[in-house]
């Protein structure tokens, strides 16, 4: 029995192509709408795109760094706590 159509490699390849196409479209769409920016750098092309990507990459890297110090097995609190 073949797996669900949504998880076949061919579908996933197609989804990636559509996704990249949509990403490109959003940047292109910037040229079609009127802008009324609050700040100067909002006028840089694709501000939302590169800022969104970099912000997320930054947060993931920061989270991994924090995890280096604060990560524990999820049974950490189970021992030593009782109903008392």
């Amino acid at each position: 029995m073949s797996d669900h159509w949504l998880v076949r490699p061919a579908t996933i390849r197609l989804l990636w192509r559509v996704f990249i196409g949509v990403l490109a479209l959003t940047v292109v769409a910037e040229f079609l709408v009127a802008h009324h920016p609050h700040f100067r750098f909002e006028e840089i092309i694709g501000f939302g795109a590169w800022y969104g990507f970099l912000a997320c990459a930054g947060m993931i890297v920061f989270a991994k760094g924090l995890a280096f110090f604060l990560k524990r097995p999820d049974s950490y609190y189970e021992k030593g706590e009782s109903d008392g």
Partner: peptide
Amino acid sequence: VVQLELLLFS
């Protein structure tokens, strides 16, 4: 447009 950029690139 800017919102879609922020979200989709996220």
